[in-house]
Write a protein that binds this DNA or RNA. Structure first.
Lengths: 196, 196
DNA sequence: CCTACCGATCGGTAGG
DNA sequence: CCTACCGATCGGTAGG
């Protein structure tokens, strides 16, 4: 039997949504026009609608992709039996990796989800909430096991998550500071603080 | 001579810009229309232009006000001779206070500054950069004096600032968790970390 | 502060 | 994938 090779083809829809992520990040979802997007990929604006339903549909693709990646990673982390601090470290490093490899889409998901249609927005926020809850559980585990300080677990999770969400402007330091150094500094600071 | 009493009058411009901050936060600058804004304060849209030059001018007022408040506070903190950790604590607590008292405007300044006209945007980013540099200097001072860990000062400053910028979704917890408890948790976590 | 209104631009459709 | 085009909405002005 012949080996079936599935070529890793980039579909037109993928090209469109990648360029949409770039454009939405640069100008914001509302200020970005479908005509600009079309120009980026050298077609006329109406041709976009052979691949997508409407503008919001594009935003939905971007946000769902990002949410799915984080959700799946959390599940992987939860599946392993590790100390809480190790799990947190894995989550933190994944955030940094995503910021480097999926900068535009992650930025858009973080900033433009308010413009999602109602159903998609509800689903997106639910996944976000689940992710947050997962981190809270890990922190509770760490407190129970005596590894972490007895902080308010939800505040602790939100503080870490908001620090990571702010990773955006670390993107430009990515060229100035070696990535691993950046990553290790952030991990260390979020886990053990800055004070001696 | 008669005592001159200056009444603390809220000008129409202030009413407009407060409502603009609310609207820009809720819908984003680009998606918010001047007609909606006018409706919020029960006048017709063209009447807005008796008080402002244009839509961008409103965004400018909001961002400049926020930037000015942070800049002045930093200068106050720098003027006192205190250990670096105390200075950082003051900055952190001020951020939290601003998030509670100027939520809309701070949110808009953080999220919508990209839509500022070029000159205003340059000035805004310069003030932000100065603020960041001020925090870096404080961290360097703390390292020199042996009080803080020898972290990369700029990464440390950006990590703290991005955590604080994410304060947005703590706004809703403000009713659930007592403000001082929230504040103390955040200060402690950012300074000393979560790990035992 | 209002009415009346304008030019520009938008997302999207029809039809091929 | 294109040309031709539409209805809606936008920021803003004129004139009082």
């Amino acid at each position: 039997m012949a080996r079936i090779v599935v070529p890793k083809k980039t579909t037109k829809l993928q090209v469109i949504s990648q360029n949409a992520a770039l454009l939405f990040r640069q100008k914001g979802y509302s200020a970005a026009s479908m005509r600009e997007l079309a120009e980026l990929i050298n077609i006329e604006a109406p041709s976009l609608y052979n691949h997508i339903d409407n503008k919001a549909h594009l935003l939905q693709l971007i946000c769902e992709d990002i949410a799915g990646k984080f959700t799946r990673h959390l599940e992987e982390v939860e599946a392993n039996e590790l100390p809480a601090s190790k799990k947190l470290e894995q989550l933190i490093r994944f955030h940094i990796k995503m910021m480097v490899t999926h900068f535009d889409a992650l930025f858009v998901a973080n900033h433009e989800w308010k413009h999602l249609p109602e159903l998609a927005q509800t689903a997106f926020l639910q996944q976000r909430k689940n992710y947050e809850n997962g981190m809270v559980q890990i922190i509770k585990q760490g407190i129970t096991e005596g590894e972490l300080k007895n902080h308010h677990p939800q505040i602790a999770a939100l503080t870490i998550l908001s620090a990571l969400r702010g990773l955006e402007f670390w993107h430009k330091y990515h060229k100035l500071v070696k990535e691993k150094i950046l990553e290790n500094n952030i991990v260390q600071q979020l886990l053990t603080g800055i004070k001696k």
